[in-house]
């Protein structure tokens, strides 16, 4: 009996772990001695970009290694306040409250704009709706419009996909689209909105579900989602999100991406930030679907 159980266990464990074994054949690269490590924490929107920068920079300067972690803009800023990161990535500006906390802790955060980002509004590729005004998008996300028919689409309920409420993208979208940039407007996302934990989950839901509408950084839009052309009002012009339209300012939902340092950066951190804003650094921005800074 005991034997049966033993072999049963072994067989099942083996079958279960087989795929893992084959994927564990990583090889050790030749490491040069690292002398400086820059810790870089923050925005999930920026995490792929920050990783690409870190890798490219490490190739150029093997003595500097940048460790990148996501978690969200708030996480990055909190880490900067606690002193557990050198550079915080944020897809929104620091809040007054956070700045105050930082100053209480003896840090004086300095802001650096490192790239631009456009928020794309995405729908399922089978959805015939291809352009929306900001007001229409706001009505959809507040729950005033609940059927695609009202937007010129099929007779289907609208499913709202949103980022979690602590995401910088959520706050940006709320302030600039749902509230249309009006500080006196206190509209909120509909309580029916799905708050999804990552860009990937939003992408999946929109790609799978013909009822869904989502929003996310342009860099995260995959061909399985359809971007909607956005107009400032119902008369248009309706502009598709792209590197050109964000740079020339015609696409209405765009924002800067920030890195924060504690005090003016010096030494390796300053060199890293300077490189990020150089042509080489900005080329990577474009490769990842974000929008490079003008003038580079």
């Amino acid at each position: 009996m005991v034997l049966y159980r033993f072999w049963g266990c072994l067989l099942i464990s083996f079958l279960f772990f087989l795929p893992l074994l084959t994927s564990c054949t990583g090889r050790e690269g030749s490491e040069s001695p690292v002398t400086t490590t820059i810790v870089n924490v923050g925005s999930d929107t920026m995490v792929n970009l920050a990783l690409a920068w870190a890798e490219a920079y490490h190739e150029l300067h093997p003595e500097v290694s940048v460790s990148v972690t996501g978690g969200g803009s708030g996480t990055g800023i909190a880490a900067l306040i606690n002193g557990s990161t050198d550079v915080a990535n944020a897809s929104r500006q620091m809040k007054e409250e956070e700045r105050r906390q930082a100053e209480q802790g003896g840090a004086s955060p300095v802001e650096h704009v490192v790239a631009l980002d456009a928020i794309a509004v995405v729908v399922n590729p089978h959805n015939p709706v291809d352009h929306l005004s900001i007001l229409q998008i706001a009505d959809v996300y507040t729950g005033r419009t609940t059927n695609w028919r009202e937007l010129g689409g099929e007779d289907r309920p609208i499913v709202l996909a949103s980022r979690e409420s602590n995401s910088g993208t959520y706050v940006y979208f709320l302030e600039n689209v749902v509230r249309r940039g009006d500080p006196d407007n206190d509209d909120l996302f509909s309580p029916e909105a799905l708050l999804l934990p990552s860009s990937e989950v939003i992408g999946l839901e929109v790609a799978q579900n013909p009822n869904a509408i989502g929003y996310d950084g342009l860099g995260y839009v995959t061909p399985a989602q359809k971007t909607v052309q956005v107009g400032v009002d119902q008369y248009g012009p309706f502009v598709p999100p792209s590197i050109e339209t964000v740079n020339d300012g015609t696409y209405p939902i765009a924002r800067p991406l920030y890195m924060y340092t504690s005090g003016e950066p010096t030494g390796a951190i300053k060199e890293y930030l300077d490189w990020i804003r150089s042509d080489d650094g900005q080329r990577i921005v474009a490769e990842l679907g974000f929008v490079p800074l003008a003038g580079s």
């Binding site: 978690g71 969200g72 803009s73 708030g74 996480t75 909190a78 409250e97 956070e98 906390q101 979690e164 409420s165 602590n166 708050l195 934990p197």
Partner: peptide, 11 residues
């Protein structure tokens, strides 16, 4: 889980 990671401590 979604919110604790990003919340300012003590807020």
């Amino acid at each position: 889980a979604a919110e604790m990671g990003e919340v300012a401590r003590g807020s």
